[in-house]
Design a protein around this nucleic acid. Structure first.
Lengths: 174, 174
DNA sequence: CATTGAATAGTCAATACTGACTAATCAGTA
DNA sequence: TACTGATTAGTCAGTATTGACTATTCAATG
C-alpha cells in the first residue's frame, strides 16, 4: 500500500492531473520510490473505483483530455489509516547489491577488492551528491537526511568489507 | 539481473531441482531477496532457453517428474560477468518505510512520536533476532553482518527522528 | 511561416511476479 | 490398513509493472 499512500499524500496538496502527480514524485521523491507513469495511472484508476479520488475531464485551451484527480473524504480517511500503519511498521530494504557479496568467493580476492573499490566510488559519489542538495522544507528534509544517513552507513560498511577482502587477498598471495 | 545471478550462483554448488533451489534461497538468503517459487521456475525456464542451464527430467522411485537444473559452461561465464557487474555497482535500497515520513506533518506530532516508537520496537526486535543468528560459513556471514550493520544504522536514525518529533510535539503543546 | 525540439498527457502490449492451487509421496498413528 | 498431516514438486490464472509508443501543444529559430 505504499504507493497508494504516496499518491494520496501528494494529492492532499491539491487536485492534480496524472502527469503532474508523476512528475512531482519523479522530481521530489525519486530517491525513496520509483513509480512509473503507467503504474501511477493504473493505481489512480483503481483508487477512483474505490472512491478514494474523483476524476474529472478538463480542457485548458484546446488541449485534449486531461484527467484531474481530487482526493475525496474517504480518500483522506484511507490516507490517515495508511499513514499510521506505515509509521508504526518497518520493512527492511532490499538491495540487490548484496547478492554479489554472497558469491564473492567465486573470484580471486584481489579482483574482488578492485571491484568493491569501484563500488565504493559509486557510493561516495552519491553521498557527495546528497551533501550538495539544498535544504528542503519540512518532512522533505527528513527524507534527504535519511538517505544521507543510509548512504554513509553503507560506505562505512563497504570500507569494512574491503578491509576484510584485502586481508584475504594478502593471505592468498602468501 | 540480480535474481539470475542468485540462481546461477546457487546452481554452482551443484545440480539441483527447482524446489531445492527455491528452498535454499528461502532459508539461507531470505533477508537479502525474496524469490517466490513460480518466479524461480519462470527464470529457470528462460535460462534454459538461453543455454545457461540444462534441464533433465529425473525420477526417484516412482515419484513424478522432477526437473534437475545444471549450470552450463555458458551459464558459468554469464555468472562471472554478472558477478563482476554487481560488485562494481551500487543500487540504493528502497524502503517504503520512508513514504510515511514524507507525510508525517499530516498528523499531530505527539501521535507521530508514539507510532515511531512502535516502529523502533520493530527494528529493535529485528536487531535482536539477527544478533541471535549463529555464525555462518564464509560469505553467508557477510550478508548477516551487513544486515546487522544496516538495522543498527536504521535504529540510530530512528532515534534521531524521534528526538526531532519530540521537540516538535513540545513546541506544539506550548 | 515551416521546422525542429522540448514539454505535456496518456495508452497499450508485453513482461514479471505472485497467491492459491493440485497432486503425489511419506511418516506416524490409531 | 485407513486416515491425517507434513513434505516435495510444480502449475496456472490473475495482478502488477513497465518499455516503448502516440499525439498534441508550445517555443524558438532560420
Amino acid at each position: 500500500m505504499e504507493r497508494e499512500l504516496l499518491l494520496l499524500g501528494v494529492l492532499r496538496y491539491g487536485e492534480m492531473h496524472g502527469y503532474q502527480l508523476h512528475d512531482f514524485i519523479e522530481s521530489s521523491m525519486a530517491f525513496c520510490t520509483d513509480l512509473k507513469k503507467p503504474t501511477a495511472y493504473f493505481l489512480l484508476d483503481k483508487m477512483q473505483e474505490s472512491g478514494w479520488v474523483t476524476v474529472k475531464q478538463a480542457r485548458e485551451g484546446n488541449r485534449p483530455h486531461k484527467r484531474v484527480y481530487k482526493l475525496t473524504a474517504k480518500g483522506e480517511a484511507v490516507f490517515q489509516d495508511l499513514l499510521r500503519a506505515n509509521l508504526a511498521d518497518f520493512t527492511t530494504a532490499k538491495t540487490g547489491s548484496d547478492i554479489g557479496l554472497a558469491f564473492i568467493d567465486a573470484m580471486p580476492s584481489e579482483e574482488a577488492r578492485q571491484l568493491l573499490q569501484q563500488r565504493r566510488k559509486v557510493v561516495a559519489e552519491q553521498v557527495a551528491k546528497f551533501e550538495q542538495v539544498p535544504a528542503h522544507a519540512g518532512s522533505q528534509q527528513l527524507l534527504i537526511d535519511h538517505q544521507l544517513h543510509y548512504l554513509r552507513s553503507e560506505l562505512a560498511w563497504l570500507n569494512l568489507v574491503i578491509r576484510r577482502v584485502k586481508a584475504k587477498a594478502r593471505a592468498q598471495q602468501a
